[in-house]
């Protein structure tokens, strides 16, 4: 999964995996948490890093901790900085 290379933040997420596990489309998830489908797509592709509020909403929707959906990969940051 791609990190947010544009801002240099190594934020990864497993939304796609959780969606598959819950048999949800992007549209379903977007409607459930009150955003557009394009936003879910942008987050999945690492183009947009969601706010803490939205990140919690997503993880709560999947009934897991936020760290299980969103991963702050410092190793990627080290590689980026180096």
């Amino acid at each position: 999964m791609p990190g947010n290379t544009e801002t240099g933040k190594p934020m990864k997420n497993k939304i796609k995996v959780f969606r598959a596990m819950h048999d949800l489309t992007q549209e379903d998830l977007a409607q459930a948490i009150g955003v557009t489908r394009q936003t879910i797509l942008a987050i999945e592709k690492g183009k947009y890093v969601p706010s803490l509020d939205l990140a919690f909403k997503i993880s709560r929707h999947f009934q897991v901790n936020i760290e299980e959906v969103f991963v702050y990969d410092e190793a990627v940051l080290t590689v980026t900085v180096d």
């Binding site: 544009e6 489309t25 394009q38 797509l41 999945e44 592709k45 183009k47 947009y48």
Partner: peptide, 11 residues
């Protein structure tokens, strides 16, 4: 574009 407005997906 930067925040993925015209991104397409396989879905």
């Amino acid at each position: 574009r930067k925040y993925g407005d015209w991104e397409t997906d396989e879905e």
